[in-house]
Design a protein around this nucleic acid. Sequence first.
DNA 1: GGAAACTTCCGAAACGTTTTACTTGACGAA
DNA 2: TTCGTCAAGTAAAACGTTTCGGAAGTTTCC
Lengths: 352, 352
Amino acid sequence: MAKRSGSSQVTIRDVAGLADVGVATVSRLPNGDPAVAAATREWVHAVMAELGDEPLRAARALLRRRTDALLVVLPLWTRCFSVQILCGIEEALLETNDAFILRTLERPADGSRTIASVRRDLVDGVLLASLVVRPLRLARLERERWSAVVADGDPAVPLSLIVVDHVEGARLAVTHVARSGHRRMAAIDRPGDPFADKQRSRRLLGDRQALQELGPERRAEYERVTPFRVEGGITGLHSLMQLPVPPTAIVVGRETHAGSVLRAVRQLGLDVPRDLAGVGYHESEIAELLGLTTVHCPRRAIGRQAAQLLLDSFSGRLAPNEVAVGWVTPNLMVRRSCGAQGTEPGAGSVGE
Amino acid sequence: MAKRSGSSQVTIRDVAGLADVGVATVSRLPNGDPAVAAATREWVHAVMAELGDEPLRAARALLRRRTDALLVVLPLWTRCFSVQILCGIEEALLETNDAFILRTLERPADGSRTIASVRRDLVDGVLLASLVVRPLRLARLERERWSAVVADGDPAVPLSLIVVDHVEGARLAVTHVARSGHRRMAAIDRPGDPFADKQRSRRLLGDRQALQELGPERRAEYERVTPFRVEGGITGLHSLMQLPVPPTAIVVGRETHAGSVLRAVRQLGLDVPRDLAGVGYHESEIAELLGLTTVHCPRRAIGRQAAQLLLDSFSGRLAPNEVAVGWVTPNLMVRRSCGAQGTEPGAGSVGE
DNA sequence: GGAAACTTCCGAAACGTTTTACTTGACGAA
DNA sequence: TTCGTCAAGTAAAACGTTTCGGAAGTTTCC
């Protein structure tokens, strides 16, 4: 059969020899070059399959100046949120046989250090997730000719983006609470890194817009920004309930934060949803466990679409300096925390 | 200064020319070849720094048959657990400038398909995390000459391993509960994929061993294996509390499962820790939120040590067919769910 | 003093692919 | 026939590195 040498590596020359064609003809195959007759193409394909040969990636990369890999920079302080984005990215890449190198960030400040640590020739481009891209970093990307896209990003950044419509998300939450019969809605959100702050302000924007449209005007004193840990939820709630006219519903900026608020509610001897209704952001095991109605981001879609955008820019479907923006809309996962219309806990799955 | 050509790529020949040495001498530098005088080394290094040159990875890989990257296969149904392992891996790799390609698994059955989808020449080896390595897969790894290590694995597998001492973990939990004055301890665990089942049986083993040593003999009817969702916790607890002599403490197989059990406890009008003490496994936001005492796995250390093992086998510090096994011991995060000695909720951070 | 051994470096030949420039043969049009 | 055009395929030159076989120069040992 094959007259391969002692090495286990089958080369393009072996294939060419066996198929009785030139090496160039073989090489043209995986690159989809049209200058090869259909019959020849098929014949050579068969020989390649027989020999179990696929072009060696390193040799290919050397000549094409392409690695078929991309860099993913992913924050971890958002925990499971990012992981779902990652899954989406992987999904998109699996279809095209590309790979990705991952760099996770544990603190917001790690961002620039991280990108700098990756050699430009290791990957074809970079996908930044849930990050603020500072002008300095942007300049660096520009200078070193990176192809870059941002997943779950700020629409003001001049890069290709997948944007989550947080304004609409907040609107969903408020509308839902209003439909459940509430008029006095408070908002508790959390301070955070610059990125989280951007998200928060967009949520608050949607929140206010929706309230205005619906009629029940929120008073300024119904808004709270309290730290993220358990005690933050407690102090936030206490200060709200001590108002002369306390709210009857609360929208909270994250599901774990909502968890701490619920805890505080119980401490006050109140019942959810009888005395107080609530909606949180983001979907998690906690939300399911607590029966909390939440606004859910399609994180997987974010990842998949962002990766697709980057692949498009590699393949030339996107001009080098063209930026594309895709929008993704959250949806509402209704549970018990706003009243009877929700499902019983445990009836639904966390899902994606 | 440099007389580089139009291309932006600085080659080894540019460096050699400018430094007035042969290309071989330059090439020896990053490979740590000792056959180059200290003075020369320094001088050439300076020139390389000046030109901003580093060897092109693809060209290097072509000749060395090394990619300086490894594959990480990581299950996602364990959610945040895996992510922490990933952080550890990244940490170890960052020091040596290696990269990794990630493949996540969403269902246990995806395992073999996933490894098969990665070309052998893309990476130098594979790190399998929290997985059962079936004989068939093992044979494949052997046949294709993969270097492989398993993080958080089953000690029976004939590969290099980092093993978590779950027996000791269970012992910690039981000992803690016993010290809090309890004698009648129940165990609720969950069924799962083959891997989780292995973990569970090791936990139960440690559990029984510790009980035997401590004196209070568990009766068989105190052990329950119930499904993972909310209703699983409820039925498990109910059937335990309806026993003629109900237990006074429960050890639960995972923190989210413990969450659903706690929920059931409240439904029965009981108080934790007054009427019933509890310990869960694994550390998470849920555990902190609920004030649940848990057994904590040092997941980061698992990842870091496993990566280190793989790097060792690349560098020859580990003989090709030598297997190394490292043990990692869990520790106890004491909170309120076993009595007064725990800290108040919110006082501690999730840590790790 | 000369051979042997060691140190330090050099030039050139790989590595397996892509790509460029060129050949060949077939087919019409002039 | 002669030329140009086109399709299909070929041979050879890259790509940037590592490494092999030497070759100087220096030291060591009889």
